[in-house]
C-alpha cells in the first residue's frame, strides 16, 4: 500500500498539482491579455478602453467570460456535429499542452524533455487542425474560406520558423529548452542573430493568425472567418486557445532569443528578482509588441502574405542556416556536444 502510494499515486497527484499551478495562472493571464489588448489599443486610439466593470474596468474579462458561459451553444443544422464540437476542444487543448515543456526558471519545468523545442514546434504545427476542422464542420462558405486561408498560411510560415529555430539550435547544440536558455548566459541570441529574431517574431504573428496576418478572420470580407458559426463556450474556447497561443509564441520568442528567465545583467539588483518574474516580464514586453503591431499596421493582402512567406522569409532563413553554420565552423565556435 505504501509502495503503491509512493510509486504511483503521489507522483500522479504531484503532477496534477503542478499542472494546476501552471494552467490557472495561464488562464488568468489569457483573461488579462484580452483586457490589456483593449486598454493598449484604446490608448493608441486616444480612447479609454473598458472602464466600467470594476475599478479601471479590471473585472471586464470576467464579465465577458461569464456572459459567454451563460449563453446558448448553437449548433447549425447543416453542421457535422462531432467535428464541430471537437474543433474548439482541439484548439484549446493544444494551446495548453504546449506549456508542459516551458521552463519558467532554472529547473522550474513540468517535463524537461530532450527534444523540448521540437515538441513546441510539433504542437504549434497541430494548431491548424482546430481551425481546419471548425471551418469544414460549420458547413458555411465564410468559415470554410477562413479555414483554408489559415491552413495555407500556417503551413507556409512554419517552414521559415523551422529554419530560424535551426539557426538558434546551431548555436546551442541541444534541443532542450533549459539548455537553450543557459546557452544565452553570456549574450542573448537576439544580438548575434538579430535578423532571425525579427523574422521569427513576424512568423509568430502569422502562426497565431494575428494582425497584420489575420486573414483567416478578416471581418471585412469573411465576417469572422472560421469561427463565424460558433457561439457561447465553443467560441470562448477558440478565443482562449488563440490568446494562450499568443502567450506561448511570445514565450518561445523569449526562450529562443531573449534569454528566457535570465536577468539582462547578472548583477545585484537584477538577480534578486526571481526567475519566473523575469520570464513573465519579457513575455509581457513581447505581447505588447503583438498588440502594438495590431494597432499600427493594416492587414496584408492574401497573395502578398504568401509571397512574403515563401519568397522572402524562406530564402532568407535558409541562407541564414548556411551562414550561421559556416561562421560557427569557420571560427571554431561550434558548441561542444555532451
Amino acid at each position: 500500500m505504501v509502495e503503491l502510494w509512493n510509486n504511483y499515486l503521489w507522483p500522479l497527484i504531484w503532477i496534477v498539482i503542478l499542472i494546476v499551478v501552471i494552467v490557472v495562472p495561464l488562464l488568468v493571464a489569457v483573461a488579462y491579455l484580452t483586457y490589456a489588448e483593449r486598454k493598449v489599443i484604446g490608448a493608441m486610439h486616444l480612447r479609454k478602453g473598458p472602464n466600467v466593470v470594476g475599478p479601471f474596468g479590471l473585472l471586464q474579462p470576467f464579465a465577458d467570460g461569464l456572459k459567454l458561459f451563460l449563453k446558448e451553444t448553437v449548433i447549425p443544422t447543416g453542421a457535422n456535429r462531432g467535428v464541430f464540437i471537437a474543433a474548439p476542444m482541439v484548439t484549446f487543448f493544444l494551446a495548453l499542452v504546449a506549456w508542459a515543456v516551458i521552463p519558467f526558471g532554472e529547473g522550474m519545468v513540468l517535463a524537461n524533455i530532450n527534444v523540448g523545442i521540437m515538441y513546441l514546434f510539433a504542437i504549434s504545427s497541430l494548431g491548424v487542425y482546430g481551425i481546419l476542422m471548425a471551418g469544414w464542420a460549420s458547413n458555411s462558405r465564410y468559415a470554410f474560406l477562413g479555414a483554408l486561408r489559415s491552413a495555407a498560411q500556417m503551413v507556409s510560415y512554419e517552414v521559415a520558423m523551422g529554419f530560424i529555430i535551426i539557426t538558434v539550435l546551431l548555436c546551442v547544440g541541444s534541443l532542450n529548452l533549459t539548455d537553450i536558455v543557459m546557452a544565452q548566459k553570456t549574450v542573448w541570441f537576439v544580438i548575434p542573430l538579430l535578423p532571425m529574431a525579427v523574422l521569427f517574431f513576424i512568423s509568430t504573428l502569422a502562426e497565431t493568425n494575428r494582425h497584420p496576418f489575420d486573414l483567416p478572420e478578416a471581418e471585412a470580407e469573411l465576417v469572422a472567418g472560421y469561427n463565424v458559426e460558433y457561439s457561447a463556450m465553443t467560441f470562448a474556447m477558440f478565443f482562449l486557445g488563440e490568446y494562450a497561443n499568443m502567450i506561448l509564441m511570445a514565450g518561445m520568442t523569449v526562450i529562443l532569443f531573449f534569454g528566457g528567465w535570465l536577468p539582462p545583467i547578472d548583477i545585484a539588483p537584477f538577480n534578486w528578482i526571481p526567475d519566473p518574474v523575469w520570464f513573465a516580464l519579457k513575455i509581457s514586453a513581447v505581447l505588447f509588441v503583438f498588440i502594438w503591431v495590431r494597432a499600427a499596421f493594416p492587414r496584408y493582402r492574401y497573395d502578398q502574405l504568401m509571397r512574403l512567406g515563401w519568397k522572402v522569409f524562406l530564402p532568407i532563413s535558409l541562407a541564414a542556416v548556411v551562414v550561421v553554420a559556416g561562421v560557427l565552423v569557420a571560427f571554431d565556435l561550434t558548441p561542444v556536444v555532451k
Binding site: 530532450n114 527534444v115 521540437m118 515538441y119 514546434f121 510539433a122 504545427s125 497541430l126 491548424v128 487542425y129 481546419l132 469544414w136 470554410f144 483554408l148 491552413a151 495555407a152 503551413v155 512554419e158 523551422g162 534541443l175
Partner: peptide
Amino acid sequence: FLAMILVVVYVGAVAVLFLFVVM
C-alpha cells in the same frame, strides 16, 4: 526525436494537405 519528427512532418504538414484536398 523520431516521434517529434513524425508529428511535425506527417501530422503537421502532410496530413494538413491531405485534409485540405479531401475537404
